[in-house]
């Protein structure tokens, strides 16, 4: 007599072939509670690890949540081997503190890479709260951009930066952000989700402007419910757990150097696992 939460994959949509995929999961309990900023912990194999993914969208009415992942290692590769109708072995959430959303005026939401998907839910929350959302998204090139259409549904503007200039402004999101902050003194808050170097750069751009800046941190987690401290980060010189005290923190107080260091804890083991998996499944790692 063991009842599990439903975890069936209802829809699988390839966003960037061979790289980024979106899944819509039947998860009525999680969907009914999920708020912007929350994440879920997944396990996709009996001997698999527990890993977090931010909830990119939730529909309480339909009882679904959306996750977006980049195939980066063994666990995401196994997840990616599942199709519509399959079930995720374990799905737990919604976890973490929800984004602190108030009606403040203009909010700039910055997203990079798959972080754009995570940022989407937060930006949507700000829009629903009546804030004027300016989305700033970036990628190496136009074909690697995510969620432009989804964001444009509620964003006042969607600004784009690509490294190669194939769409929007050539360069980084931080340049677009900086120009915007210089031009618009009414920006009340900046949210940034993406690779750590991007979030760190955003924090440095906004600091001189004194604008409240929030980042969502992607620390390594085990349980995701505050029991182990693997995800600990240094914020304002004290230890905080990303899983229960975050994942969002004041960007101006986060020790990004330490976060980067800790994210590298298991790189050799991650590579080893992925290599074994790929060799067994005839894929290139």
């Amino acid at each position: 007599m063991e009842e599990l939460v439903s975890t069936t994959i209802l829809k699988k949509r390839i966003l960037i072939p061979g790289r980024v995929t979106e899944m819509t999961l039947d998860a009525p309990e999680i969907a009914s509670k999920a708020k912007p900023g929350n994440f879920v912990i997944l396990r996709v194999a009996e001997d698999g690890e527990r890993f977090p993914l931010t909830i990119a969208d939730a529909d309480a009415g339909k009882g679904t949540i959306t996750i977006v992942y980049l195939v980066l290692g063994k666990s995401t590769a196994i997840l990616d081997s599942l199709g519509e109708g399959d079930a995720v072995l374990d799905l737990c959430g919604p976890l973490g503190r929800a984004t602190d959303i108030h009606k403040v005026g203009t909010v700039i939401c910055v997203g990079g890479g798959t972080g754009i998907a995570a940022m989407h839910h937060i930006a949507k929350g700000h829009a629903q709260a009546g804030n004027k959302v300016v989305s700033v998204i970036g990628a190496r090139s136009a074909d690697l951009l995510l969620f432009e259409e989804e964001l444009s549904k509620f964003s006042h503007e969607v600004l784009i930066a690509t490294d190669d200039g194939s769409k929007g402004q050539k360069g980084f999101v931080t340049q677009v952000l900086k120009e915007r902050l210089e031009a618009d003194p009414d920006v009340k808050e900046v949210v940034a989700v993406g690779p750590v170097p991007m979030m760190r750069a955003v924090a440095e751009v906004t600091r001189p402007f004194g604008v409240k800046t929030v980042v969502s941190l992607n620390s390594i987690m085990v349980d995701g419910i505050g029991m182990c401290g693997a995800c600990r980060v240094r914020v304002d010189d004290s230890i905080r757990f990303a899983c229960v005290d975050g994942p969002e923190f004041d960007a101006h107080k986060v020790d990004f150097g330490e976060l980067m260091m800790r994210l590298g804890s298991y790189v050799p083991q991650e590579k080893q696992s992925y290599k074994c998996y790929c060799e067994c499944h005839g894929k290139e790692s």
Partner: peptide
């Protein structure tokens, strides 16, 4: 306990999921 009729639900974080 299961044979006594106790139902176990895993992956339920009380306070979060319910």
């Amino acid at each position: 306990l299961k044979r006594m009729g106790v139902v176990f639900k895993t992956n339920w974080v009380v306070g979060k999921t319910v």
